[in-house]
Design a protein around this nucleic acid. Structure first.
Length: 849
RNA sequence: GCCGACGUGGCGGAACUGGCAUACGCGCUCGACUCAAAAUCGAGUGGCCGUGAGGUCAUGCGGGUUCAACUCCCGCCGUCGGCACCA
C-alpha cells in the first residue's frame, strides 16, 4: 500500500480493506494447515458442511463466522488449527432442477458450488481450501462404495425384504427420516406409506449399546438424551408361547414375545400379533379369514388415512386360534391389531390388560378378561378380586405379586427375576434386551447419489463389484422420463452389465445410497482428500482425530450425528481408523429467524441477503453482529436496526486507533480527564481495564460465549472513547490498551483488526506481520489487579450504601468503616447489629433484630 | 401423553459455584454541531410515589429455604423443540 493511498483512506471503509486482506491472506497461505507439523498441538475445528443450494443465506454466516472466530482464537493461542470446508453435494434439489430446467445435476451442483465459494470467501474465514471435499465427485463417492463393500464383507450391510417407509416423492426413507404423528417425509412433507421392498440396510443396531455410551464426549445434554431415547434400550425377557392345537391346525408353533414385565406373565389373558406377522395366515381360521384379511388390508392402507388424533381407539380382530401361556398352561386367544408394531421386538405381544394401558383399552373394547397380578401396598385382598377401572402400571419397590402361582406374594421386582429364572430353566424364555433403534435403510430410488456397488446375477445372486472396478460411476447422460423416476433404472447402458464372477449377463443395482452416507465420514476425508489408496490416511487420522470441536444445527441429533458415530465405530472395527468417536466436543448453534420471528423464506419475504449486508456494512460488522445478538445456541430473530450499533462500535475502534487525540469535529466534551483523576491515574485505569478485559474475553472465546465477548470489547472501547482527546490519549498505556483491543478483536473481526494493526506498525516504522499470526496476549496480573474495591452495603438484605475500600482490608476494619457511614446509621435507626455478613469481601450485610 | 429447553425493561440480552438485578447494544427523550437534515458527539432512560435527597415495587404465577434467591426446593401457568401405541 502506498503512503498516498493510506492517507486517502482516513475513514473506515470495509469495502476497500476487506477484499484486499482476503487476497493477501490467500497469497500468503495463512490458513493452509500443515497436517504433518506436530510442533504445535493440533486443533481440528469442523463445521457441518453445506448442501450447495446455490446461495449463501445469513444462516450460513450465523453458523460459520463464530466458528471461524474460535479457530482464529486457537491459532493465536499456539495451536495448529485445521479448518476444512466442503460440500454435501448429492441430493434431491439437483434432480429437481434437472427435471425443471433440463440441466444436468452435476453441472447444476458445480455451478452452485462456484457461486458459494465466492460468497464464502467474503466472510474472511480461515479455511484450508486445499482440503475441500465435494461428495458428488467420483473421487469421493468411490470411497462410499469401497466402505460399503467392506461393511458387506463384515456383515454390517445386508439386503432384506420388509415393509419400508415410502415417500411418493423421495422413495424409501430411513426410520429417522419419517417425522410426526402423521408420519410425513422429513424433506418434502408428503405422507409416508408402507411398501414391501427388498432394500439395503446397515446394521446400526449392532452398535446400539456402544452408541448409548457418551463417556469422554462433551456434548450438549439434550442431544445425548435425544439419542438415548432414539436408541430406546429396554430390558426385559423373551417368552416362548406356543399355539394350541384345535380343529383346524395341530398347534405347537412357537410364538415368541418380548416383554419388559415378565413379572406380569400370569396376567397375560390374550396375545396380539402385528397384522404383518408371518404366522397370521397360518393361524387364521377359515371362518375368520374374511374379517382378518379385511383388517390387514385396512391396516396397510392406514398410514395414508388422515389421522386427526393420536388417541385413536384400538382396533383389532380375533384370528380364531389360541396360544398356551408357558407358566400356567392357560389357553388364551390370539388377536391381530395395528397397535402392535411389526418392526419392534418379535412383532407379537402377550397382552396383560391389568397392567398395561393399551392392553387394558383393547380388552375393555373387545370384552377380554382382565386379571390383576400386581398389587400396590395398600390394596386389600378384596380389592384384588374386584374389577379394575384402570390399568395399574406402577412398578416400584412396594408392589407385590398376586394371582401368580408359586410367585404370589413376592415383591414385583423379585418376581421379575424369579420368573425369568424359571423360564430359562424350562427353556421357555430368557432375559433379553430390545432397542427402538432400527437398522439403517440406505437404499434410495434416485439418480443423484452414490450407486450401490453390487450386481444381480441369475447364477451367482448378489455379487459385489470388485474393488478394481470402483467407482461405479453415474452415467453422464440422464434421461428423466418423469418426475420421481430413478433414471438409472431405465438406463440400459448403466443397468445392464456382466457378472464379475461368471461373466454372464447381470443387472446392476440401480438404487443409490442415502446421502447421509456421505456425511458419515467426510471429516476423515478432509485429512487426505487426494489419497487414492484408501478413504482415510491412517497416520494422519491417528494424529488429527477425533475432531476437537464440531458445530452445527441440532436438527441432526438423531440422524447425521448418530450415523457419524456408527460409521466411526464400524470403520474402527474394520481397521480403517483408530478413533471410535468422531466428535469430542459438540456445539449446537441456534437458528436465525427473520425480523418477524418466523423462519426465513422467500415466500415470506423476510430473508436477509448477506451479500447485501456485506456491501453495506462490511463482513466484520456482519460477523460481529451475529455473535453479539445473543447466546449462540439460542439463535433468534434478525434485528434490522441492531447492526448499526456494531457499525458504530467498529468506527469508534477505528478512530481510537488512528486518531487518539480526537481532531475530528464534534468531540466537544472530550479533552478533560474525569474529575479528580490525573494522567497517572488515567493510565492506570486504562491498563487495568484492558487487562481485565483480556482475562474475561479469553475465557469467553474458549467457552463460545461470543455475545458477552463482544460486549466486553465494547466496554473497553467505550473507555478509550472517554479518554480520547485527553492527556491520557496516545500515552504508552493508551497504546497498550489499543493494541490489546485489536488483538482481542482479531478473531471476530479479522479485517479491521489486521488493517489497524498494519497501520499502527507502519506508523511505528515496524515491519508488517499479520495480526492473525500474533500470539494471544497474556494478562498482566499486576495491571489487572485492583487496589481499591467498591463494596455494597446492605441492611437486612436491602442495599443502603457502597464504600470504596482498599483491597486487602480486614473484616473488622471494614465493619467499623461501614457502621460509621451516615446512610447505614440512618438505616439502623439506633438498633445494634445482630450479625454482620461479609460474603468474602464481596458485600457486607448488616442484620438487625 | 412422555422427554427436554426456556420465561428478566419498549426490544435483543447480561448477572460464572446464591451476594449491588437490568452489563452491552437497539430504540426512545433532551442537548451540542448544522441554514436544515443525516452522520457524529454528550446527557438521560424498569414501574410507581416524591420538587428533592430518597422511598417503594419489580426477574411468568403461588408458596418455601436463607442474613441474602433471576439463581436452590415444592406446586402451577405459558412458549419453543423432540418423540408418537416401542410391549
Amino acid at each position: 500500500m502506498s503512503a498516498q493511498e493510506r492517507t486517502r483512506i482516513d475513514r473506515y471503509e470495509p469495502a476497500t480493506i476487506e477484499p484486499r486482506w482476503q487476497r493477501r491472506w490467500a497469497e500468503l497461505g495463512l490458513y493452509d494447515t500443515n497436517l504433518a507439523d506436530d510442533s504445535k498441538p493440533k486443533y481440528y475445528l469442523l463445521t457441518m458442511y453445506d448442501y450447495p443450494s446455490g446461495n449463501l443465506h445469513i444462516g450460513h454466516w450465523y453458523v460459520k463466522t463464530p466458528t471461524d472466530a474460535l479457530g482464529r482464537f486457537h491459532r493465536m493461542n499456539g495451536k495448529n488449527v485445521f479448518q476444512p470446508i466442503g460440500f454435501d453435494a448429492f441430493g434431491l434439489p439437483a434432480e429437481n432442477a434437472a427435471i425443471k430446467n433440463k440441466i444436468h445435476p452435476h453441472a447444476w451442483t458445480l455451478k452452485n458450488i462456484d457461486n458459494m465459494r465466492r460468497q464464502l470467501r467474503s466472510m474472511g474465514a480461515g479455511w484450508d481450501w486445499n482440503s475441500e471435499v465435494v461428495t458428488c465427485e467420483p473421487e469421493y463417492y468411490r470411497w462410499n462404495q469401497w466402505i460399503f463393500l467392506r461393511f458387506l464383507e463384515a456383515g454390517l450391510a445386508y439386503r432384506a425384504g420388509s415393509p419400508v417407509d415410502w415417500c411418493p416423492n423421495d422413495g424409501t426413507l430411513a426410520r429417522e427420516q419419517v417425522e410426526g404423528t402423521d408420519r410425513h417425509c422429513w424433506r418434502c412433507g408428503a405422507r409416508v406409506e408402507k411398501r414391501d421392498l427388498d432394500q439395503w440396510y446397515l446394521r446400526t443396531t449392532k452398535y446400539a449399546d456402544e452408541l448409548l455410551d457418551f463417556t469422554g464426549l462433551e456434548w450438549p445434554e439434550p442431544i445425548r438424551i435425544m439419542q438415548t431415547n432414539w436408541i430406546g434400550r429396554s430390558e426385559g425377557a423373551e417368552v416362548a408361547f406356543t399355539t394350541a392345537p384345535d380343529d383346524s391346525q395341530p398347534g405347537g408353533d412357537g410364538l415368541r414375545v418380548f416383554t419388559t414385565r415378565p413379572d406380569t406373565l400370569y396376567g397375560a389373558t390374550f396375545m396380539v400379533l402385528a397384522p404383518e406377522h408371518a404366522l397370521v395366515p397360518k393361524l387364521t381360521h377359515a371362518d375368520r379369514a374374511a374379517e382378518v384379511n379385511a383388517y390387514i388390508t385396512a391396516a396397510g392402507r392406514e398410514t395414508e388415512i388422515e389421522r386427526l388424533s393420536t388417541e385413536r381407539p384400538k382396533t383389532g380382530v380375533f384370528t380364531g386360534s389360541y396360544a398356551i401361556n408357558p407358566v400356567n398352561g392357560e389357553r388364551i386367544p390370539i388377536w391381530i391389531a395395528d397397535y402392535v408394531l411389526a418392526g419392534y421386538g418379535t412383532g407379537a405381544i402377550m397382552a396383560v390388560p391389568a397392567h398395561d394401558e393399551r392392553d387394558f383399552e383393547f380388552a375393555r373394547k373387545f370384552g377380554l378378561p382382565i386379571r390383576r397380578v400386581i398389587a400396590g401396598p395398600e390394596v386389600t385382598d378384596a380389592e384384588v378380586a374386584a374389577p379394575m377401572e384402570t390399568a395399574f402400571v406402577s412398578h416400584g419397590t412396594e408392589e407385590r405379586m398376586v394371582n401368580s402361582g408359586p410367585h404370589t406374594g413376592l415383591p414385583a421386582k423379585q418376581g421379575f427375576a424369579s420368573i425369568v429364572a424359571m423360564l430359562e430353566k424350562q427353556g421357555r424364555g430368557k432375559a433379553s434386551v430390545n432397542y427402538r433403534l432400527r437398522d439403517w435403510l440406505i437404499s434410495r430410488q434416485r439418480y443423484w447419489g452414490t450407486p450401490i456397488p453390487v450386481v444381480y446375477c441369475d447364477t451367482d445372486g448378489i455379487v459385489p463389484v470388485p474393488d478394481d472396478q470402483l467407482p461405479v460411476r453415474l452415467p453422464e447422460t440422464v434421461d428423466y422420463a418423469g418426475r420421481g423416476d430413478n433414471p438409472l433404472k431405465s438406463d440400459a447402458s448403466f443397468a445392464n452389465t456382466t457378472c464379475p464372477k461368471c461373466g454372464g449377463p447381470a443387472r446392476r443395482e440401480t438404487d443409490t445410497m442415502d446421502t447421509f452416507i456421505d456425511s458419515s465420514w467426510y471429516w476423515f476425508r478432509y485429512l487426505s482428500p487426494q489419497n487414492e489408496g484408501a478413504p482415510v490416511e491412517r497416520s494422519i487420522e491417528a494424529r488429527w482425530c477425533p475432531v476437537d470441536q464440531y458445530t452445527g444445527g441440532a436438527e441432526h441429533a438423531v440422524m447425521h450425528l448418530l450415523y457419524a458415530r456408527f460409521f466411526t465405530k464400524a470403520m474402527a472395527d474394520l481397521g480403517m481408523v483408530h478413533e471410535r468417536e468422531p466428535f469430542k466436543r459438540l456445539f449446537n448453534q441456534g437458528q436465525i429467524l427473520g425480523a418477524d420471528g418466523e423462519r426465513m423464506s422467500k415466500s415470506r419475504g423476510n430473508v436477509q441477503d448477506p451479500d447485501e449486508l456485506v456491501s453495506h456494512y462490511g463482513a466484520d460488522t456482519v460477523r460481529l453482529f451475529l455473535m453479539f445478538m445473543g447466546p449462540w445456541d439460542q439463535g433468534g430473530p434478525w434485528s434490522p436496526t441492531g447492526i448499526g450499533g456494531i457499525s458504530r462500535f467498529l468506527n469508534r475502534v477505528w478512530h481510537a486507533a488512528l486518531d487518539p487525540h480526537g481532531i475530528e469535529p464534534g468531540d466537544a466534551e472530550s479533552g478533560v480527564l474525569p474529575a479528580g483523576q490525573d494522567k497517572a491515574a488515567a493510565d492506570r485505569a486504562l491498563r487495568t481495564a484492558a487487562h481485565r478485559t483480556l482475562r474475561v474475553v479469553s475465557e469467553e472465546y474458549a467457552e463460545l460465549r461470543f455475545n458477552t465477548m463482544v460486549a466486553h470489547l465494547m466496554e473497553l472501547s467505550n473507555l478509550l472513547q472517554r479518554y480520547r482527546g485527553t492527556e491520557a490519549a496516545g500515552s504508552a498505556a493508551w497504546n497498550e490498551a489499543v493494541g490489546l483491543l485489536l488483538l482481542m478483536l482479531a478473531p471476530a473481526a479479522p479485517h479491521i483488526a489486521e488493517e489497524l494493526w498494519s497501520r499502527l506498525a507502519e506508523a511505528r516504522g515496524e515491519e508488517w506481520a499479520s495480526i492473525h499470526a500474533q500470539p494471544w496476549p497474556s494478562v498482566d496480573e499486576a495491571a489487572a489487579a485492583e487496589n481499591e474495591r467498591e463494596v455494597p452495603v446492605q441492611v437486612n438484605g436491602k442495599l443502603r450504601d457502597r464504600v470504596m475500600v482498599p483491597v486487602g482490608i480486614g473484616e473488622a476494619e471494614l465493619e467499623r468503616l461501614v457502621l460509621a457511614r451516615p446512610k447505614v446509621v440512618a438505616a439502623l435507626e439506633g438498633r445494634a447489629p445482630t450479625k454482620v455478613i461479609h460474603a468474602g469481601g464481596k458485600l457486607v450485610n448488616i442484620v438487625v433484630r
